[in-house]
């Protein structure tokens, strides 16, 4: 077993994991995180995305030991003091979700993109989201939500 200590949504946690356990299963099974979803298991759909030290990462392709000493942010960790993050609000205002399964991953990827580039072009938004699949919205409202934060 590997002892893993990290900060999860602002709270320090310490858990034991099997060396070959993924971060996804650690979050879901051991820590009860609800917003991280399983999709393809091969880094194509983005439903399991979290932010690791501020950068997006597929939790299904991340071994638990990798997060030791790092900071993990899930969708739940974006809201501060009961206030939604502006990206979360933009998604609500633009109806950028339907079934919602992909939404946590897309919002976190959007946050990473906007942290990296405050005024991304349409091309950069589409390119950044290429690893996050949505099968409901057709992306139009998602891109609109992200662009509403760029203006």
């Amino acid at each position: 077993m590997v002892k893993v200590k990290f900060k999860l949504d602002g709270v320090f946690v310490e858990v034991e994991a099997m060396p070959y356990q993924t971060l996804f299963h650690l979050l879901k099974d051991s820590l009860g995180v609800q917003s991280v979803h399983f999709g393809c298991g091969q880094g194509a759909c983005g439903a399991c995305t979290v932010l690791l030290n501020g950068k997006p990462r597929y939790s299904c392709l991340t071994l638990a030991g990798y997060v030791d000493g790092k900071e993990v942010v899930t969708l739940a960790g974006l809201a501060q003091n009961g206030e939604l993050n502006p990206i979360q609000r933009a998604f609500i205002e633009n109806n950028a979700a339907q079934c919602g399964y992909c939404t946590p991953g897309i919002i976190l990827t959007a946050k990473a993109l906007l942290d990296k580039s405050s005024r991304p072009s349409d091309e950069e938004i589409f390119d950044a989201l290429a690893g996050n699949l949505c099968r409901c919205t057709g992306y139009v409202s998602i891109v609109r939500a992200i662009k509403s934060l760029v203006r």
């Binding site: 070959y20 298991g41 091969q42 299904c60 392709l61 991340t62 071994l63 990798y66």
Partner: peptide
């Protein structure tokens, strides 16, 4: 051996590999 994890992790999760040692 695991670097970014995008391939090596799939050997574990999709192909059932159970390595004795994981080297990050």
């Amino acid at each position: 051996v695991v670097a970014g994890g995008t391939i090596a992790t799939q050997l574990i999760t999709r192909f059932g590999l159970r390595p004795k040692v994981i080297l990050s």
